[in-house]
Design a binder for these strands. Structure first.
Lengths: 174, 174
DNA sequence: TTTTTAGTTCATTTTATTTTGAACTTTATG
DNA sequence: CATAAAGTTCAAAATAAAATGAACTAAAAA
């Protein structure tokens, strides 16, 4: 196995970056996007330059260029420019976490729509029709519920995070 | 564009089947799986035989064989066998719709885990670390919330579906 | 038992996706 | 203005994923 990350980075972080690549691939994004995101996460610097990313991940400029666009477009990464410096720097964006989920839930809208259209196309109404109606309604409904929950998160997150932190510590102590 | 479905099926349904294929592809499954599922949905028969599916979708036996395994494995399709008939028939399974969502939410667990591990790997605690903790907690929390919501759906779905049905009719009347 | 039908397996081919690399654009700097 | 650095673009190469088709297995029927 060729290790594609190096330049004085700890083995653990190199492994992490590759795992992030594989996860992104599983989520339908590209492996390189996952590597870049992983690198930006575990890098100790506040931001990394295009060329730094390219060198660490040992990829071509073209590949990094396309990947940065993907990540910017998905809102996962932010570009930073500095006066007196023509380079572009990148850092993980502090995107509202609920927005990632909302974005992903759009997939369910599509799924709901295809189920509902399928039901309309059937001339015979049977128990599959029933199921189709039920399933597409479910996705409409769950979308609304999720919006409410995400609002709840935004307003109560400090408290919730604190609760989770305590739970975690309790487990370690016992 | 080669139309890969035919055999006396309405154009609308053929289009539907192809769109279902494209959607499944977008969801990370295969196009063929989407076609088969779409076909089973809009077919007027209760179930379709292996060979019927193969003929309608004009695909090879190997392709259908692999695809049926995928769909069975994902729980989207059920196999039916009949006494005195050596064929296998397939129909869309009346899978609990919440289960599809729960299955998909596993992706978020993975995402939460990678964010949390990234945070642990950083020696410097900065605002990215803060964000990582927040984001991974969010996914833990949302998983629990969603389980509750899905339970609520299961117990109240008849009522909810009725409400949505009325809303839909009102819109048509006005 | 032999034949036939139904489906599986898997090496090969086809198709789609990702990466590279070189030429090009843009913008800062001497 | 000329030069250089930083990125972008895109055709071609590399890689990965999916479909085919032919040989194979299992199980019912003759």
């Amino acid at each position: 196995m060729k290790m594609s990350v190096s330049l004085g980075m700890e083995t653990e972080k190199i492994t992490y970056i590759e795992e992030s690549g594989l996860l992104f691939e599983k989520l339908g994004l590209t492996r390189m996007a996952g590597r870049v995101f992983g690198y930006l996460i575990v890098s100790e610097e506040d931001q990394a330059s295009f060329d730094q990313i390219r060198k660490v991940l040992q990829a071509s400029k073209g590949s990094i260029s396309g990947t940065m666009k993907q990540l910017l477009n998905a809102g996962m990464v932010e570009a930073v420019s500095l006066p007196g410096d023509r380079k572009t720097y990148y850092r993980p964006s502090k995107i509202k976490i609920g927005d990632i989920l909302k974005y992903r839930m759009k997939q369910f809208d599509d799924f709901a729509r295809i189920l509902s259209r399928g039901e309309e196309l059937k001339s015979k109404k049977d128990d599959v029709s029933e199921w189709l109606i039920e399933a597409s309604t479910f996705y409409l409904w769950i979308g609304e519920q999720l919006d409410e929950i995400i609002d709840k998160w935004e307003s109560e997150k400090t408290k919730i995070i604190e609760e989770y932190r305590q739970n975690h510590e309790e487990r370690i102590e016992s």
